[in-house]
Design a protein around this nucleic acid. Structure first.
Lengths: 353, 353
DNA sequence: AGCAAAATTGACAGCGTTGTCATGAATGGG
DNA sequence: CCCATTCATGACAACGCTGTCAATTTTGCT
């Protein structure tokens, strides 16, 4: 009755000790090889590597984390904007994570939620992530960032606006590029240009309105109060805004919506009213979603390199989080205007006298 | 020079021992309370709970995982279909995870990738998740499921089709509901109905075609070969298919696309050809994405409770994964036809004589 | 009251790594 | 050729929990 093979059902996990034994070194040396630490003779290193290969050994993430006090996970906090946006943010973050063997922890929440700060601090306290990424509009939630600073939870913001010098952030020049799109419309000959603003909680979108207003002022064009319609980022709110704007006694010849979703709503309403696009009405959006190609006329918009921003933010976080709070940094990633068919010179009849 | 407060910079992590000391019990008892284990006197439990509260103690996930040999993470494997789909799957999975304190590990990949099985097995070997969820079309990737079975990585499939009895899966009755939508079109009086098929790698979508064909056969209606256009799930491929179908000498009066994206492409092309929708052409989609409300006429489609499927699959996985491979189970979640404005009786002129 | 069974609690050994520190070997300069 | 460095390696103690098992107390019956 030998114990050779037989019903050896449940051989337990392969550990660093097995590798060490096979390579005839101590476990510490195996650890050094795994972590690419210096001071290991090449010959030894090769022997260990070979043992790892032969055994098909995979170091336990969990044990590594416990010993090193790093979890190799970064959190992503977001408030359910468009699937498209989230998808791209995730793609960028995943790219940064992948290279460094990090994992991504998702944490959707809602902007107003007063318990969010506590939740995040708890997750961090439980060692469920090393640092966290905040996307708009959460990046503007003071109660949250304050709590994170106070509890020394490393974080990086993805947020428009370049003023602030506190915290680490990756930002866009939203305001400038909105102004650029506005000048594009003005350049086409539009004088009566309306704006569909985004959700008021979404500070990022508020800045878009500011960019529009300042460009209009610069161009010496008036923006009557009724030309600024409050939207809420949704397609439906874009439709509603369009109905109001186009029902005006003196309707605009161009409508600039703070995101593509609303712009698409505007287009749908305009067409249902029999308005000839883009001859009688130009429409511009923001975000450059795939939707721009799916509406007719193809929507002029502003392209933000979402994935690239997220990747950069994640990289910053990973590099810094291991050694405490992330130092204040500001990384600007420029957006760009993409002109398509939905913006054109206004028809004579509807142009200013 | 007392050591009272002063520059007490770096107090180290709060551990279960601190709680035990304050509550005057052993660490094991604290552990019992944390894990809601039985056999702790109510009074003791209260005392421990109070100590936890007072100290604001949060058990380390990592230490817990190491000791219990569970990581409390489930993986989600997907091949980049639409952001909308992914977003909903994630939402469902997150819901299931949240309740049980699990985390979600994302792993996007590509259908054909031969290294995927190895990657997943490695992640599991490193204890980066307890079990994994496969979404279509990955759920049909034999090489992958085989590897997972072989390596005893717990997994649950989200996949259409109810035939197979192996593995644990959450499935839809795609085929039946496609047949139902087809009958809806037939019932409206359509005789010449075309189908835009989905990406050939996407087995799920292949089943949709089968459902269509069988319903047509049942209705005694012919489906000439040129009435089945190959699409690739994208808006653009829908446009291309529509151009082919509508350019036919004897064009269909209804087009059923295997997803909304392609259906939207069909609508765009039809309208650009000056076809009066839905009078001259009915269009149906599948997935019931928000897009259905954004095109005109509003798209009839098939609603799949994606989030609910994902939630159920995740729940199955979590319940079972702790104790080895998931037992074969089949959970059917029915889809439903949603009729909107894009499907209507065919105009006289274009109906069959 | 007396005893078996159940409830409650704690001691202690892991879990599989990395960090710290000590030891011995190799190297370099005068 | 000697001594001070630097390199290479290993022993062993964390890391912060849970699992196992034994010890003690309480409970339920007769």
């Amino acid at each position: 009755m030998t114990e050779s093979n037989g019903a050896a059902s449940h051989r337990s996990r392969l550990t660093i000790e097995d590798v060490a034994a096979l390579a005839r070194v101590s476990i510490k040396t195996v650890s050094r090889v795994i972590n690419d630490e210096p001071n290991v003779k090449q010959e030894t290193r090769d022997r260990v590597l070979e043992a790892i290969r032969r055994l098909d050994y995979r170091p336990s993430r969990v044990a590594r984390s416990l010993a090193s006090r790093q979890v190799f996970v970064i959190g992503l906090l977001y408030d359910n904007p468009s699937p498209y946006y989230i998808y791209n943010v995730q793609a960028g973050v995943l790219k940064a994570c992948e290279q460094r063997g990090y994992d991504l922890l998702l944490h959707p929440t809602t902007f107003g939620n007063a318990r969010t700060p506590e939740e995040i601090v708890t997750l961090h306290g439980q060692s469920r992530f090393d640092g966290v990424l905040l996307t708009p509009p959460l990046s503007d939630m003071e109660a949250l960032t304050a709590a994170l600073r106070e509890q020394r939870v490393p974080f990086v913001l993805i947020a428009p606006g370049v003023e602030l010098e506190t915290d680490a952030r990756v930002c866009t020049n939203d305001e400038a590029v909105v102004a650029e799109m506005t000048r594009h419309l003005v350049g086409l000959g539009h004088r009566r240009i309306a704006f569909v603003a985004g959700h008021p909680d979404h500070l990022a979108v508020g800045k878009r309105l500011a960019g529009f207003l300042s460009a209009m002022r610069e161009a010496g064009l008036p923006v009557p109060a009724e030309y600024v319609a409050q939207g809420y980022n949704s397609f439906e709110s874009g439709e509603a805004a369009a109905r109001r704007l186009l029902g005006l006694p003196n309707p605009p010849t161009a409508i600039f919506a703070a995101n593509d979703e609303m712009a698409a709503g505007v287009i749908k309403v305009a067409r249902s009213l029999g308005i000839d696009l883009p001859r009688e009405l130009s429409v511009a959006g923001f975000d450059d979603t795939p939707m721009t190609a799916q509406v007719w006329p193809a929507l002029s918009s502003v392209r933000q390199p979402i994935a690239r921003m997220a990747e950069m933010a994640a990289s910053m976080l990973i590099e810094a989080a291991a050694s405490g709070p992330v130092p204040p940094t500001r990384q600007l990633i420029p957006s760009e205007v993409v002109v398509r068919e939905s913006t054109a010179p206004p028809a004579r009849s509807s142009a200013d006298h």
